[in-house]
């Protein structure tokens, strides 16, 4: 069965209702995925280290990406179309406000109508899994190209000159990614789409890295992570069936194992480091 995309079910303000919004506080998977993406976005923004910046979060939702910005020591303003998601964000913020400064603001707004901020307000902009919503027309008066154009033009205006934007999105197809990137280019942005983990359907993430500077180099995509030292799980008492002695070379030799491990690393999975024991034949003890 093909995976249904929530974007096809209707406008975002209907999709992100009370029930959907609650998932964003209760599901630890959603929280960790969103936090990872937000951290990567902040990394791609390439802000001056050690300085507090004023960052716009487009499609902030329940403020999970905002929490990542707070951790990085920045102030942020969030903008989202869903009332229920914003309510969760303000509740979360009110709970956190007791512990420190809450210099953050929320605005309910549809990014397809152009962002309602004054020129040159922000030092950067991030967005987590929101941009693809712009590509769907939900009523006869909406036009995806117009909405994309308005969004990028207003984003260009409200960013300070020389700042960057890192927007993560889930494109339905390559054509959609191109559509979004070309809309950004038309608004005057330089930069392009950076794809992390391109070999894996699951871990693949598209980041649109935009910059005011025409000559800015596009940041490098994240390399598949090398195996991290983890807990070694002891294998069960399972024994491979005995090979009949045919004198043939085994099909799954060391080269095959190494090839397979390399492929899985490319998918961004946790793979043990190669060692001299990798793919080694067991002793014929029995």
């Amino acid at each position: 069965m093909p995976i249904t995309r929530p974007e096809e079910t209707g406008p975002p303000e209907n999709f992100y209702d009370v029930k959907e919004a609650r998932k964003y506080t209760s599901s630890s998977r959603i929280i960790s995925v969103q936090a990872d993406i937000a951290d990567r976005c902040i990394e791609l923004l390439n802000l001056e280290p050690g300085k507090k910046k004023f960052v716009l979060d487009v499609g902030c939702g329940s403020g999970l990406s905002g929490a990542a910005l707070e951790r990085a020591g920045h102030e942020w303003v969030g903008c989202d179309v869903s009332r229920d998601m914003l309510r969760i964000a303000s509740e979360r913020e009110a709970a956190a406000a007791g512990g420190g400064d809450d210099d953050d603001d929320l605005v309910q707004h549809d990014m397809g109508l152009g962002l309602p901020f004054r020129d040159g307000t922000f030092d950067g902009a991030i967005s987590v899994s929101a941009l693809q919503w712009l590509c769907y027309d939900n009523d006869s008066r909406q036009s995806a190209t117009k909405r994309l154009g308005r969004f990028f033009a207003s984003l260009y205006r409200c960013l300070k000159s020389g700042s960057r934007a890192a927007l993560q999105f889930y494109p339905e197809s390559d054509a959609q990614a191109t559509l979004i990137a070309s809309a950004a280019a038309r608004a005057g942005f330089a930069g392009g789409v950076v794809v992390d983990y391109p070999n894996s359907t699951k871990a693949r993430k598209h980041y649109l890295c935009l910059s005011m500077d025409r000559h800015a180099a596009r940041p490098a995509a994240e390399e598949p992570r090398r195996a991290r030292g983890g807990v070694v799980v002891a294998g069960g008492g399972e024994r491979a069936p005995k090979r009949r002695k045919t004198g043939k070379k085994p099909a799954k030799d060391r080269a095959w194992v190494l090839r397979k491990k390399e492929y899985q690393r490319g998918q961004g999975r946790d793979v043990k480091d190669d060692s001299r024991y990798t793919g080694r034949k067991r002793k014929d003890r029995f």
């Binding site: 309910q108 707004h109 109508l113 309602p116 909406q142």
Partner: peptide
Amino acid sequence: GIPNMLLHE
């Protein structure tokens, strides 16, 4: 505390 800046298309 959240301003609603939504406009119609």
